[in-house]
């Protein structure tokens, strides 16, 4: 099916936000913030009973969704608005709706609105993205 405005891109599902992933990312981000690592600190701060996922991990889910839906594309831009936290154990779904498809010479730019939703709550990140693809790659996707 051709990619066109109004079309939903295949969603990416994350069944379980894992504390192990948060632990693996803490040194990469050089962020020892205990709200990602220590439930007692989360409780003490009145932020609930579950560890809070690092924001950049949540961005990664959106990027992975875009790359899986538009393989061979180059992400030109992403604008994110952080609406809520993601917690350990959350089930998430990253999805997007195509807003424009613009062909110029040998390239095609696909713009979309996206969301990252947490099951049993609602949107945690919303935003827009533009992905550039070689026209031949774009045509092969259809």
């Amino acid at each position: 099916m051709a990619i066109e405005p109004g079309m939903s891109l295949p969603p990416l599902k994350v069944d379980f936000v894992s504390p192990e992933t948060m632990k693996a990312w803490a040194p990469i981000l050089e962020d020892p913030n205990p709200i990602h690592l220590d439930r007692e600190v989360v409780r003490a701060k009145g932020l609930g009973d579950r560890l809070i996922n690092q924001g950049p991990i949540n961005l990664s889910y959106i990027i992975n969704m875009l790359q899986a839906a538009l393989p061979g594309g180059f992400i030109e831009s992403i604008s994110n608005r952080f609406v809520d936290n993601v917690y350990e154990g959350d089930a998430l779904e990253a999805g997007a709706t195509v807003t424009t498809v613009a062909r110029s010479g040998d390239t095609v730019r696909v713009a979309c609105d996206f969301t990252l939703k947490a099951e049993e709550r609602d949107i945690v990140i919303t935003g827009t993205a533009v992905v550039e693809l070689p026209a031949a790659v774009f045509d092969a996707l259809g």
Partner: peptide
């Protein structure tokens, strides 16, 4: 006191 991420916009010019 808990700063919170509000928005984050990126433009890539190359991989």
């Amino acid at each position: 006191d808990g700063p919170m991420m509000g928005t984050c916009d990126v433009t890539y010019f190359r991989p």
